[in-house]
Write a protein that binds this DNA or RNA. Sequence first.
DNA 1: TACAACTGTGCAACCGATTGTGCAGAAAAT
DNA 2: ATTTTCTGCACAATCGGTTGCACAGTTGTA
Lengths: 343, 343
Amino acid sequence: MEKNASYSPPTIKQIARQLNVSVSTVSRALNNHPRIGAGTRERIQELAKQLGYEPNIQAISFKQKKTFIIGVVLPTIKEDFFSQAINGIEDAATQHHYTMLFAQSHDNLETEKRVVDAMRKQRVDGLIISLSKETNNYKHLELFEKFDIPIVCFDRVPSIKNVHKVYCNLYKGTIEMVTWFFNKGYQRIALINGPATLAASNDRLNGYKDAVSNRKLKVDMQLVEATDFSKESTIAALKKLLALKNKPEVIISFNDYVHMDAVQFAKLMKIKVNKQIIFASYANLPITSYTIYPPVISIEQYPYRQGEKAMEMMMKVLQQKSLGNSSNDSFYTEEIAPVLVVH
Amino acid sequence: MEKNASYSPPTIKQIARQLNVSVSTVSRALNNHPRIGAGTRERIQELAKQLGYEPNIQAISFKQKKTFIIGVVLPTIKEDFFSQAINGIEDAATQHHYTMLFAQSHDNLETEKRVVDAMRKQRVDGLIISLSKETNNYKHLELFEKFDIPIVCFDRVPSIKNVHKVYCNLYKGTIEMVTWFFNKGYQRIALINGPATLAASNDRLNGYKDAVSNRKLKVDMQLVEATDFSKESTIAALKKLLALKNKPEVIISFNDYVHMDAVQFAKLMKIKVNKQIIFASYANLPITSYTIYPPVISIEQYPYRQGEKAMEMMMKVLQQKSLGNSSNDSFYTEEIAPVLVVH
DNA sequence: TACAACTGTGCAACCGATTGTGCAGAAAAT
DNA sequence: ATTTTCTGCACAATCGGTTGCACAGTTGTA
């Protein structure tokens, strides 16, 4: 019976013993410290390579209080928007040799708190988060400030907060879209908006209102409904719009998922989609091209780029932090211009 | 100018000092060690709570050589199948207080090697992986054995290997589906299969062949094409099938994504989808319900359950490992029965 | 020639916990 | 009354690196 001498990876201690030098010399040699003699350094580096030495990240993290891990919290990866965003996040992280601790909030505040806390306990170097639709207070995030862990929010960003932000300006986007419809001669434009907690909903609503006002028209709030993103809620909102005496000619949905549910129900109601009523939406997700009625017009929000920018912003912040330019209360904001896509 | 005395979390050392006991006593008190007096324990636990003491996971990971992190590598999160699977993985992980280091291989072997290696270096406690379609050798995984890090493969599992596995038996599923069509009176059933590297492709092919053979019919390999999952490749495969003198009556696609591309092109070719030719597929993803022609019949593969089982299997393996029942060369396999869904 | 500066290396503390061992004093057994 | 067992705690090593400091030997400078 052999002893179960499970393999253990080489350490600097072993290298030190084999070459009759001290561990500090090995450490310095491997880090190319200038005070180590060329010969010694080469002998050490060669042996390290030969042994397949890999520094123990656990040990380094512990000592340096850095983990080289970024926490990423998204509402739900099911949505194409976020699964594209995470690609951007991942690619940027890879470039900087960071890895990614991942969790979903499922648009639930309690879950968000829980996962965010788990990440803090795991001592992530930073947190990239797109808030849940329920998130209306930021205590769980404020804790990060105390621990000096930077936060970058993207897409679903808090209205006011001392965090870094990347987002798409949908106020402008909405104005563009609504104006486009006005220019095409449509008058009664409806909006199925998202929950009021989301800053993104306010952006859309304000854009909508201002676009109407710019046209010297009066805003008819009967044309604005809200959904909590569930199919039922979306259908309820749509029903109200369809029940109006003066039916809408255009229905703009909060995003492509709301759009798909709306169109599906509209079809059930025997409405001639995109003839009788034009359906438009936000996001421009690839999946819509397979659907029966893709949105006639959509707003591209560049999820990949948002994710990428968010991670790059994080890297910049971490770099500054390590340089000691700590906690100067300047917070970055990056706005990505949305683009109107007509199909 | 205040000193930038960035907050640092309380440690057992501080608690020890404040209560005039040793750190070992604090450690044992917090872990409810029986040899600590009741009074001492309470005083310590109370102060710990009051200070908001949280054990430093970094320090513990380092000492115990456990990180409480599981690496998760999936081909691509864009696919609903995997985004559902990751939910199962995440939920099971949460239950066991594990967190998840996540990365995608994007169906690329080199990327898979890279991310898998990054996870090993981060000393994950275990790896859950669904292989890339290019993965035809397992050297990068074998390294894990040396480091004594268990691997659980799911869905896309290697044909032969000393790893734990969770998958859906699509050999059986395919037989069921093909037989179902035979029973409905269809004769010429075609298959747009996946790349031959994937065990999943073989399962489908073998199921297909055996279903035909069971019917005492001869397998016509002209009816079997393959795609690498790109739209172009799928279209090319479909074109070949449509060019046959004796056109297929049924086309079964490798999965719903292949199906959607196939249907889209078929429509372009003026084929009456699901009338002239019936289209079926695997996966039964929710997104298909929004598409023009959802598959007439589909095979539910329970991605959530697969992910969940994979993580639970991992937990079981880790538990046994910590109990010392190490590396007895028994590897778990769990088969999930697919279910035929007729729409 | 004497002193300063530099080069190359080792010693030891440290990060925050866990854990084996030792050792008093109290309780129990003989 | 003496020995044994148990209770409650402290000491110190350890995990794998990093880093400030000391110090000897070499080289450079005045």
